[in-house]
């Protein structure tokens, strides 16, 4: 076999790809599910922490900052491995899926909290003062005056961070989650042919090119109109 034939046989073996398409497609579905659950929970928890932080309760804020810094400092894979192999020793067993979801959710929570917080503090003090001077409460002001402005400036960094975290779902393959990468790796070992990995890469492109394009659209859509 020539070099090119060899390459095509190894990486673009249509027979292998056809055989394992269903397996990788299932992996794609699992990746989408995992990513959605991470994005929803991570962004909601991050917002909740940023709102709590805005109350300015000192000890609580130290706790929030510590938690956030912890999950921003640790590599996501380390958190996944710790939760998956560490928690069972405390009697709490987590599936690979749950450990991956929880880890990446905590990481997204931490990064998005910082982004939301930066957005909240970027809203001028005069906005708070004007709203409070009309009798609006702290929470009403936060919800109706400050957050709408804060969220708007946080959309580009949040979009970027969200895309980065959802790509981290590939780390689940380390703890046996049959998401795209995990499924492709199994297929590769069954077939003893790396074409399954090519299929995995295609699945990632199918999933993330629209996500990246959506991110770009959201960024331009929410750019400040002056």
């Amino acid at each position: 076999m020539s070099g090119l034939e060899n390459f095509l046989f190894s990486f673009f073996n249509l027979k292998v790809m056809a055989t394992y398409l269903p397996l990788v497609a299932q992996g794609l579905a699992l990746t989408v599910l995992l990513a959605l659950l991470i994005v929803v929970a991570g962004l909601a928890l991050g917002l909740a922490l940023a709102v709590l932080r805005s109350f300015g309760i000192r000890p609580l804020n130290w706790l929030i900052i510590f938690t956030v810094d912890l999950f921003r400092a640790l590599p996501p894979l380390v958190i996944i491995v710790l939760l998956f192999f560490g928690l069972p020793t405390l009697g709490i067993g987590l599936s690979g899926f749950a450990a991956t979801w929880l880890s990446l959710t905590l990481v997204l929570m931490a990064f998005s909290e910082e982004i939301y917080w930066a957005g909240i503090t970027a809203v001028p003090k005069g906005q708070w003062e004007a709203a409070r001077s009309t009798g609006l409460s702290f929470l009403q002001t936060l919800r109706m005056v400050v957050l709408p402005q804060a969220l708007r400036i946080t959309i580009p960094p949040l979009t970027n961070r969200t895309i980065a975290i959802t790509k981290g779902t590939a780390l689940g393959s380390v703890v046996g989650v049959a998401e795209i990468l995990g499924a492709s790796q199994s297929a590769m070992s069954f077939s003893a042919n790396p074409s399954a990995l090519t299929l995995g890469a295609i699945a990632y492109l199918v999933l993330f090119i629209p996500v990246v394009a959506l991110g770009r659209w959201i960024e331009t859509r929410f750019a400040w109109k002056r």
Partner: peptide
């Protein structure tokens, strides 16, 4: 009622 130097409209 209060009116500010920097307007502070939403």
């Amino acid at each position: 009622g209060m009116v500010f130097q920097s307007f502070n409209l939403y």
